[in-house]
Every structure is written in C-alpha cells, then in structure tokens.
Amino acid sequence: MGRYVARRLLLTIPVLLGASFLIFSMVYALPGDPIRALGGDRPLSPAVIAELRDRFHLNDPLYVQYWEYLKGLFQGDLGTDFRGRPVLDTIERTLPVTVQLALVAILFEAVIGLVAGVLAGIRRNSYFDNLVLVSTTLIVSIPILVLAFFAQLLFGLRLGWFPIAGTNDGLYSFVLPGLVLASGSLAYVARLTRTSLAENLRADYVRTARAKGLPNRTVIVRHTLRNSLIPVVTFIGADIGTLLGGAIVTETVFNLPGIGREVFNSIRSQEGAVVVGIVTLMVFFFIFFNLVVDVLYAVLDPRIRYD
C-alpha cells in the first residue's frame, strides 16, 4: 500500500505541473497590457512601466516566466497581484469560505443522496423508487445557475427562510448555496446508490446471509451497503473537483467571498498570478482527493490489493 501511494504521489507531479502550466500559458499569453490598465486614466510614466514589467518578468519568454513562478512556488511564494498584495494572503482569506461551502455541499450530497438511494434501492419499482428516479432526472437537468436563482427567489425572497447573499449568518448562510451546489451530485449519488444496491441485493452472498437467518437490517447494512458504497465513494471523491468548478457560479450568484468568486473576478480583471495560484490549488485538491478515494477503495473492497 505504501509503495502504491508513493507511486501515485509521484504521478501527481507531472499532472499538477501540466495543469498549472496550461493555465499559466493561457493567462500569460494575453497580449493585453495589465500594467498599462493599472494606470487607469492617468498613464504611468515609461520608467514606472519598465520597472513594473521587469518586476513581474513580463518581458521574458513564457518558459522563463513559468520557471520564475515555480521557483517562487517552492519557496511558498505564490507571487503578488498587480497591486502588490501577496496571492497567498488572498487565498488564506478566501479559502475558508469555499471549504465551508464544499463541506456543507458534501454533507448534503452524502446524507440526502445516500438515504434516498438506499430507500429506493431496497424497494425497487415502489412509489418512492419512482419518485427518486423522476426527481433526480429533474434535478440533474436544472443548471446550477437556474437553481441558484430559484432558490434565492423562493427560499430567500418569498419565504425568507435563508439569507441570499454574503456570509453574515455564519454556517447558516451556507445552507442554501451548499444545497444548490450539491444538487446535481446529490441526484447522481442517489441514483448510483440505488443501482449499486439493487444489483448487489441479487448477489449470492446476500442470499446466503438471508438463508442463515440474519435480520434484514444486518443483511443490508453490514453486507450489501458496504459493497454498494464503493462506486459511490469514488464518485463523491472525484466530485470534489466538480464542486470547486461549480463554486465559481454558486459563489458569484450568492456573493460568497470564496476562491470561486475570487478566481472569477481575477479572470475578468486579468490578475494572472491570482488565477494561476487558485487554479493550481484547485487542481491539487482534485488530485489529492482522487488519491484518497483510490486508497479508500482498497480499504472498502478487500478484493483490491495494490501491491
């Protein structure tokens, strides 16, 4: 297991570098001049422009710029934005918001998705099963953007149950955006659990368990669920990357000051350093959780041995 993890960790390095270079080259290939834009109405003097261009390595070829960036990265320096604020500070300020949002979303995803999926899977073709099927199709089809507006309109403005913007109400202000963010994955988790459970319930070992007189609850919880959860866990882990992508929209609509909204604003204002920093972080999270899931896989399924 240790060797497997080490090998996987090594494999993440080219992916992490590749993804950050991809974003880096897209952002820095911009022919537009952010330094000139910085001056606004009053043009900066040529000396200042030259000095700033030099400081941000804007005159060097792309690979040199990237090398400079990497050197900084390994010293824990993600660079500064064009106003001189360290990118690391920006991330420290915004990341907790997104972490809370993602945690709330994953909680909804796991709890509601699993419960609905298990109940539907146990009684296939029942009324509840069909309800889950139809409602998940519906939820999957609603774009996050649309769902966000309707949640704001209905639960925020009409009913007044939840705040619709900002983080003033602590964890409570993450409930509505979290639910919106989780919606698509939640539906998918429910379906996956349902199919997986229903499939495993037909397996021979379940018949054996029943035959030796185990109560239904034990058969489902101890024997079937554990096996059925394997694809679900994989999905939830891989889904964290999707959640971060969805956070861009959710945080923008709900006005949450997290990394999603920050990266969107930075893309708009061409703050290259911030964009590359946050995207690299997102990619890191994505890779990390995928690794965790693969390791969990072996823990959950004794048939899988990595070494």
């Binding site: 990357g241 861009i248 893309i267």
Partner: peptide, 16 residues
Amino acid sequence: IFYALPLILGALVLLR
C-alpha cells in the same frame, strides 16, 4: 491534466 481542471474554469479562462 485536462481532467484536473474543472470544465467551466478552463473554458472561462480560454474564452476570456
């Protein structure tokens, strides 16, 4: 590498 970048994010940067 591409898989690690969220769809919306990658397209957002490219289109910007």
